[in-house]
Amino acid sequence: MGQQARADDEQLGAAVVRAQGGDEQAFATAYRMVQPGLLGYLRGLVGDEAEDVAADAWLEIARDLGRFKGDGAGFRGWTAVIARHRALDLLRRRKARPQQSTYESDLLELPGAHDTPAEALETLSTARALALIAELPRDQAEVVLLRVVVGLDGPSVARVLGKRQGAVRMAAYRGLKRLAGRIAAEPGVTDDGPRTLGEAR
């Protein structure tokens, strides 16, 4: 993914520059490139209300676009910070922990939006992965989501979360390790859950 992401980021960076110059199409391009990751991240944070939060975030992004300085990767980080602030606002209002595992409903809806079986399958497995990530403890889930779904690098994740890089690395490591265990144990949970979970350690 590395090179692909970099090429992606270059494209995104160019789009952002053009958008800052007033190019509406370029802004649409940037939106299409950033929104999926942002939405995945927000789903992990706020669950069902991710779309609303993302819409709020994009209003702010569109408004403050002129202030932004940086490349494509930077734009991902910048938008992630904005989205995170909106999400935290919501969580504060809600005074509740982020809803976890809200992907079941998406599973029912998403495949219908795609034409080919391959796309449906891909989407399904993506949703599976996101659901698993969302079950992690909040800090670990956030790090993993930012790394994997939004596509930020370590320093950017640290900046978005306002943590030190070491803490982010540790959270990512723990989260991914736990995730690996979940993924391994997950298909047989109903049959022999405790056993497989125990073995997964």
């Binding site: 939006a113 795609h114 989407t123 993506t126 992965a129 996101l130 779904v149």
Partner: peptide, 8 residues
Amino acid sequence: ITAASSAE
């Protein structure tokens, strides 16, 4: 995720 997320 990157393979799939571009669609939605």
